[in-house]
């Protein structure tokens, strides 16, 4: 990680015209990332954004940092190579639900289990936007789109459940209507050592407008968003009217008055056992029920790059710095006079 420096948001804005559709949730996310950068104290020259393909993947062009707009789905793999070659850089990965969970699903899960030092922003708008509106791996069953005129018959991924299953060491969720919450999530994801992923509920106002309206609109948030706070009972609703308990491994919503505050599950994001986080991720499979936001999981685990560098150091300590002439003579040799 780099030393912290002082920047303003302007230092993070590139000279490129932002070309998302007017009203796209991505604008808010871009703004929040740029503001988070100033709070983190990152250096734009020591920061790299890597993306795949999709609307979200245009992100690097708008950041005044190093960046690569690569190919569909492969950004976690390319970013892994960059992060391992250059531990001195802050490497961020940006992609959408199609990019990360469909064509690039394999790379995402393996980046998680390896715990390469990457901060991954998963823009989930539950639709293919850049190809103009087909169901995505997070679209709800029955969704009518151009490629599913009679309703999608695909069962969707729950991205939080997926990455928890993939051994992620940091898992967070936020949404594009709450800048302060986004900034907080991005900072915490960045500061985590290892792979961190933040799912961002993002509205596509052209092809899937209002996908999250039932939970993210101002008048619905209090009763529909369950804010997760480390070390605190999981409560939401007006004056904490509701809460969450884990019953036989299953998360359930209860009225606080019925069970008492002490009976509510206390959230520990550093719980070594991911079962509770997983149960919380299953509370809402569609954004029509109270949905947890915040840090689901944040645990310390050996970081791939650190261990790799330690192996290089150990090999050098044990065998000495590599000498080419010694290498060439390392198999049996014979002399011809």
């Amino acid at each position: 990680m780099t030393e912290t420096i002082t920047t303003t948001r302007k230092d993070w804005v590139s000279n490129q015209e932002v070309r998302w559709c007017p009203g796209c949730g991505d604008y808010g996310i871009l703004m929040a990332v740029q503001m988070a950068m100033t709070e983190i104290g990152s250096d734009p020259d020591k920061t790299a954004f890597v993306s795949g393909i999709g609307c979200a993947a245009r992100f690097p062009y708008y950041m005044n940092t190093y960046g690569m707009h690569s190919i569909h789905g492969r950004s976690p793999a390319i970013a892994s190579g960059l992060a391992l070659a250059r531990p001195d850089l802050d490497v961020w990965v940006v992609g959408g639900d199609g990019d990360m969970l469909s064509i690039g699903g394999n790379h995402l899960i393996h980046a998680m289990r390896r715990n390469v030092n990457l901060t991954i922003l998963l823009f989930n708008n539950r639709i293919y936007g850049l190809t103009k509106g087909q169901y995505s791996p997070t679209s709800e069953e029955g969704k009518i789109t151009k490629s599913s005129p009679m309703g999608s018959i695909d069962h969707p991924f729950n991205p939080i459940s997926l990455v928890l299953g993939a051994e992620a060491s940091f898992v967070g969720r936020t949404h594009d209507m709450d800048r302060k919450h986004m900034i907080d999530m991005f900072k915490r994801a960045h500061d985590h050592k290892g792979s961190s992923v933040v799912e961002i509920f993002q509205n596509c106002n052209v092809f899937n407008n209002g996908a999250y309206g039932d939970i993210t609109s101002n008048d619905r948030r209090e009763e529909m968003i369950i804010d997760l706070h480390d070390g605190e009972p999981i409560r939401f609703g007006h004056d904490g009217s509701h809460g969450v308990i884990i019953d036989h491994g299953v998360a359930k919503i209860v009225e606080t008055a019925d069970v008492g505050v002490d009976a509510l599950t206390v959230h520990h994001h550093d719980n070594p056992d991911p079962s509770v986080a997983f149960a919380l991720s299953r509370l809402a499979s569609n954004p029509d029920a109270p949905t947890p936001m915040g840090v689901f999981r944040s645990v310390e685990r050996p970081v791939y790059g650190d261990v790799l560098e330690a192996q290089l150091e150990k090999a050098t300590a044990d065998k000495g710095p590599g000498d080419l002439n010694t290498l060439l003579h390392s198999l049996p040799t014979w002399e011809v006079g």
Partner: peptide, 12 residues
């Protein structure tokens, strides 16, 4: 990447 003042974006 990391070279001061030469931040830029590349892509396919």
């Amino acid at each position: 990447p990391g070279t001061p003042g030469l931040a830029h974006r590349i892509g396919g």
